[in-house]
Simulated assay, not measured.
Amino acid sequence: MKNKILGITTFLPLVVTLIVINFLPERIPRHYDLQGNIDAWGSRYTLFIFPVVIILITLIWLLVIKYFEKKSISAEEDKERKEAGGNAKVLYVVAIVENLVFNVMCYSFIFSAYLEVKSNAQVMAIDINTVMGVVYGLMFIVLGNVMSKCKRNSVLGLRTPWSMKNDIAWAKSQRWGGISFIVSGIIIIISAFIYGGLAVIGIMLGVLTLDAVLCFPLSYIAWKKSEERG
């Protein structure tokens, strides 16, 4: 089932673009300035960039997933095999959620271009920044909920010099990092509805920077406490 969902979310944007592109003129809005005004036009075939990027990113995810799936079979220790299998499942969730975010962004760009062409508009028909804030906020909330399910590895999760030292430090780091992601997602969504525009992007970058600043000392504290307990 997870392979089917991943496949649908990977190729649906390409199918939708192939259908919709026939209803668009040769030239569509291609770029917007900071105020949302259309400042460049281009070929309608530029809409294929997003679907192709989605496919390429999914292929990278699949390579990482296959690595963990092989490790879940070939690892010598039972604990290592279970952890690898669990991480492969978490990666499927992450890949699907990311694809859903990209799906929404892709359809928003297509619909916005259609509305702009239809009404001969000179400004962005849909506030893409607001859409980004909402979908990325939701993505952070989902990722925050699955972080605690990640087992210690060098690819996925909150990896710091301290979280990688032992399983206790890792588990606590993921728990605190997950809470931080959930709170960040809620803040980003609220700011998207209140402010919109470029302010959303600024707030999103600020919140994620704060996450990074907070998670490192929290991870260190988790490791320090695990060492004190022996």
Rank of each mutant, 00 (worst) to 15 (best):
N129S: 07
E116Q: 12
V146H: 09
N129T: 05
R152E: 07
C106G: 06
T130A: 14
S108F: 03
M147Y: 15
N120L: 13
A121K: 02
T130V: 05
A125P: 01
M132K: 03
S154M: 15
S154D: 14
R152A: 13
K118S: 14
F140A: 01
Y107L: 13
I110K: 14
Y114F: 14
M124P: 08
C106L: 04
M147V: 09
N120W: 10
V142H: 00
E116K: 05
Y107Q: 10
T130D: 03
S119F: 10
N120Y: 15
D127F: 02
K118P: 00
M139G: 02
C150R: 06
N145M: 03
F109D: 05
C150Q: 12
Q122Y: 10
S119I: 03
V123I: 09
S112R: 13
Y136I: 12
I126Q: 08
A121H: 00
Y136N: 11
D127W: 02
N153P: 02
V146E: 13
A113Q: 08
I110R: 09
V142F: 01
M139I: 01
G133R: 03
V135P: 04
I141M: 11
A113K: 12
A113P: 01
D127C: 03
I110L: 12
V123A: 10
A121R: 05
S154R: 15
T130I: 04
A113F: 06
R152N: 07
F109M: 14
K118E: 12
F111K: 11
V117Y: 10
G144K: 02
E116F: 01
K149Q: 10
C106P: 06
G144D: 04
I141L: 05
K149P: 04
A125R: 03
Y114I: 09
C106R: 09
T130M: 15
L115C: 06
K151F: 04
M124K: 11
K149I: 00
N129F: 08
L138P: 04
C150K: 05
N153L: 03
V123P: 04
Y107V: 15
S119T: 15
V146I: 12
N153E: 05
L115R: 11
Y107P: 09
Y107S: 10
A125W: 02
N153I: 01
S148P: 07
M124R: 15
L138I: 15
F140C: 00
A113L: 04
I126K: 09
Y136G: 10
G137I: 02
G144H: 00
I128Q: 12
E116D: 06
F111E: 10
S119V: 05
M139R: 04
S108W: 07
Y107I: 15
C150S: 12
S148N: 08
V131R: 07
L143M: 12
R152P: 02
L143V: 13
M147A: 12
N153F: 00
F140G: 00
S112W: 08
T130K: 13
S112V: 00
D127M: 00
K151T: 01
M147D: 06
Y136C: 11
C150T: 11
E116C: 05
F140H: 00
N153T: 01
N129Y: 08
L143E: 14
Y114P: 01
